[in-house]
Amino acid sequence: MNNTTLTHSLRFIFLVFLQVLVFRQMTVGWGDFNYVHVMIYPLFILLLPIRIPDPLLIFLGFLIGLTVDVFYISYGVHASASVFLAFIRPLCLKVLTPRGGYNITHSPNIKNYGFVWFLIYSSLLMFFHLLFYFTISIFTHIYWVEIILRTISSFVVSYVIILLYLKIFNPRD
């Protein structure tokens, strides 16, 4: 097990803990106004190295989603959303290819590709992740307004939290 794998494994565990122990309580604690679901675990998938093979990436998405699902007692809902996130990550990277191309050993983070690039990259993926998550969680097109509202409100809050996380921990891999 080399250094990179260790870093990502530790991040996996840490993000799941953070998600389950801190942010799940926040959602519940806010009572009526449960339009906001803070999502921080997708950051694990966002920060995986660029060279990671697609099948492995998607499988890791499935793994972290399912782990979160176990604690949320919503088997499959988070997993399906993060599998989707992992699936569109390579497409998103392809669209956002910087002028010099990618250094495949890098992870897509602020340090390597700049703040603006990461802002676009992570907001795009987070938005689709949340949209997919609320679609599966509400599961009917009748409440599409609810889906959109929850996606937008959760996106804003989650995104602020993610930026704070990145500011505090400043991941290098």
Binding site: D54, I58, S74, G76, A79, F87
Partner: peptide
């Protein structure tokens, strides 16, 4: 990628509709 995505997504959705 596409294959794994489809397989896992089917697994996820079947879990969604059987456990929730």
């Amino acid at each position: 990628g596409v294959l794994v995505f489809l397989i896992l997504e089917v697994i996820c959705l079947s879990m969604v509709v059987s456990f929730n």
